[in-house]
Simulated scan of single mutants.
Amino acid sequence: MTKDPVIILAEPQLGENIGATARAMLNFGLTELRIAAPRDGWPNPAAEPLSAGAFEAGVSVTTYDSVEAACADLGYLVAATARPRGMEKPVTNASGAVDLIAQQASSVGVMFGNEAQGLSNDHVALCDAIMTYPVNKAFASLNLSQAVIVFAHAWGEAAGQEGRFEGAQAGVSDVASREALFGMFEHFEYELERAGYFHPPDKTPLMTRNLRNAFIRGQWTTQEVRTFRGAVKALAIGRGKARIKRDD
């Protein structure tokens, strides 16, 4: 992957959306936010609650008087828009934009428009490519931070971020061995036999196979086997206590 792209907000209106944008960015590893001509100025106290601490945790903010100034040092620029512009520019989705950015040797920015009107044609004209999302044609109305997070997610995924689970098996114990499963089967079947479950007796082999097949499909972990055997034991003990109480 090339250097992380900067996110540019062109003339944003609400501080809340700036804060939510910073939060969306940092979730997927993006840390440079540029704000061009914010309506309510900057810093904006309304941004802090929606940022969830993203500014303190790593998102840097630089303000500019104009969109042109915000992108002056960038070699490649992508415009995020839901409206066709009739311009001769490559048009792609979020993952396609990530691919285009990865091919660039220079610094790259992804620009998003304001809440009321999005990017103007003049803003889009400054860009090398257009990024759009497969939204509902009858309702293309993403919130500013929502639009940013769609791209940020695509960027983080392409960068190989795995999240807190760090792989599909993180936090899960090893798959149970056949020996452990066989022990569980025998334990469970013994208690079922004591409870009179297998009836009529000639159906016992078929019923046992059905139970074992169901358990095998579950791909039980070592911890799950221990938990289940503990539950079977508790039920057996409880049944014994109930029998003693009835006898009394």
Rank of each mutant, 00 (worst) to 15 (best):
A102G: 05
K233N: 12
D174Q: 12
T62G: 04
P90N: 08
I237F: 01
F151D: 11
V110Y: 01
I237R: 01
G96V: 14
L192Q: 14
G109F: 12
L74E: 10
Q104E: 00
K245D: 15
T227L: 04
A125P: 04
K245A: 15
A168F: 09
Q161L: 05
A24G: 11
V61Y: 11
G113L: 01
T2A: 11
R246T: 14
R246Q: 14
L181I: 02
L33S: 09
G19Y: 12
G167C: 02
N210K: 14
E191I: 09
R85E: 11
F188K: 06
I101Y: 00
L211H: 04
P5Y: 06
E189R: 09
L181S: 00
A52D: 03
S173A: 10
L142Y: 05
G86I: 10
K89F: 09
Q146A: 11
A158W: 06
A158F: 03
I7Q: 05
R246N: 14
T31G: 13
F198M: 10
R209A: 02
L142T: 03
S51M: 07
V59K: 13
N93Y: 03
A152T: 14
G41F: 07
R39G: 07
I216P: 01
F185T: 04
Q219R: 08
G15A: 15
N213W: 02
V98H: 06
I35L: 11
I8Y: 14
G171Y: 06
L74P: 03
A54E: 03
L9D: 08
G41W: 11
D4P: 12
T208W: 06
L50D: 02
Q223I: 09
F151L: 04
A125L: 15
A138Q: 01
P43L: 07
I244P: 10
Q169G: 09
N93I: 03
I149V: 15
